[in-house]
């Protein structure tokens, strides 16, 4: 028996049917077709599948899809505005903050959650924000620098 649910995905209304117990990761990828969300462990340990639910970072593999009804979900697919990259995306590119790229969407969303709440984070804040995200290419330093760069852009714009 499938249940209908609706939510906002990157600002757009989305409606779909889910099996009871379906997780948000599979719902986004399989039912809605947002392939920017990646699965890494399906058990809440690697952070790869991080998305924002009402602005907070959530492990989509452990989030029940039905619990997201009526909420606003943000993924990497929604970061870009037309041809313009989000400052985090530009900073990741410039700082060489991706190698295999598989952890990148989760890293970006964890970083966005931080910058949305704290536009001028310290290095420690950044480390803390991405501490649940595994990068097995071990490119943490460039990632931290990229997030700080993006935040630096925030303060310049402010």
């Amino acid at each position: 028996m499938k249940t209908p649910i609706q939510f906002l995905l990157n600002g757009e209304e989305v409606a779909t049917f889910v099996e009871s117990g379906a997780n948000l990761l599979d719902t986004l990828r399989e039912a809605v077709g947002d392939l920017s969300v990646k699965g890494g462990c399906w058990q809440g340990t690697c952070g790869t599948c991080t998305v924002l639910v009402d602005g907070s970072p959530r492990l989509s593999c452990l989030t029940l899809a039905e619990s997201c009804a009526g909420r606003a979900i943000e993924t990497t697919a929604g970061l870009r505005r037309g041809p313009d990259l989000h400052p985090l995306q530009s900073a990741f590119m410039e700082r060489f903050a991706a190698q295999c790229g598989y952890c990148t969407p989760g890293m970006l969303m964890a970083a966005k959650a931080l910058l949305d709440k704290n536009p001028n984070p310290t290095r420690e804040n950044v480390v803390d924000a991405i501490s649940g995200n595994v990068c097995r290419c071990t490119g943490y330093e460039p990632i931290i620098n990229a997030v700080l760069d993006a935040a630096g852009g925030n303060s310049r714009r402010a």
Partner: peptide
């Protein structure tokens, strides 16, 4: 001198086609 990776744009936009991204 730095050279941008050809796959970097795909990585930061979540559009790089990993094997499981084919439907």
């Amino acid at each position: 001198q730095p050279t941008q990776r050809q796959d970097m744009l795909g990585h930061v936009t979540g559009t790089s086609p990993y094997y499981d991204d084919h439907r």
